[in-house]
């Protein structure tokens, strides 16, 4: 008697949930760390002096020219070789955070540079210092500008979390493969995993649109 899909799903529910939980934590950590780092990258590219900008540019060009999988593998293998014992989870999150930072850096830079110069001049004209200008005039505008792209990057991180299965992190995709190795229902379970990823990412997309609407300036 062929096992029914629902029976199998129910049996595997804990495994699936644990995998999903790990996927979520990988993504969240990568997005948070990557965004913080990315803001520094973006600020350096926009306001830094020649040398800082050069160093940061080289950093982002190398990261963006390298496939994420290579970053993950490199992070995993190189860390153990140089004696920094990172478990696969940490190595993977590090790689994803670095990847995220290069994207967020570009986004922040783009957002800041899109603001017309007149805004800075008007702020100067009423006597604001640079710090005040950045905090009250530039950053709020840049934030609204790059919010959609940032939400997109967040979704990319969820998708990239699947790559950690290659280095043995038991996130959703690896767990799915484990389940399939037991019950051979690859069609159903890959499909199910795909559906879960779709729901999460689609949810992020919708949430992003909602935040965009809520923070939009009336015109």
């Amino acid at each position: 008697m062929a096992p029914s899909l629902f029976d199998q799903l129910w049996l595997a529910r804990n495994v699936i949930l644990s995998g999903l939980g790990l996927t979520v934590s990988i993504s969240l950590l990568a997005i948070l760390a990557g965004s913080v780092l990315g803001v520094f990258v973006g600020l350096s590219l926009t306001y830094g002096n020649r040398w800082l900008r050069l160093v940061v540019r080289v950093y982002t060009d190398i990261i963006r020219g390298t496939p994420v999988l290579v970053l993950v593998l490199a992070s995993y293998y190189v860390s153990s070789a140089v004696g920094v014992n990172l478990d696969p989870f940490s190595a993977g999150v590090l790689a994803l955070a670095v990847f995220c930072s290069s994207h967020v850096g570009e986004i922040v830079r783009g957002g800041l540079q899109a603001i017309p110069k007149g805004q800075t001049e008007a702020a100067k004209a009423i006597g604001l210092t640079f710090g005040q200008t950045f905090a009250y005039v530039l950053w709020p505008q840049a934030l609204r500008q790059f919010l959609p792209a940032w939400v997109n990057t967040a979704a990319e991180m969820v998708k990239a979390s699947t790559l950690l299965s290659v280095i043995g992190v038991a996130e959703l995709l690896l767990r799915t493969q484990e389940i399939i190795s037991r019950n051979f229902m690859s069609l159903q379970f890959y499909f199910f995993a795909g559906a879960l990823y779709f729901v999460v990412n689609y949810g992020i997309e919708r949430f992003g649109k909602y935040v965009e609407r809520k923070t939009a300036v009336p015109s």
Partner: peptide
């Protein structure tokens, strides 16, 4: 310099109002 700028007021051709 910032303090001195506050002693004068300027209006620009492109208005430069803060849109947010």
């Amino acid at each position: 310099i910032a303090r001195q700028r506050a002693l004068t007021g300027m209006a620009f051709q492109q208005f430069n109002l803060f849109p947010h």
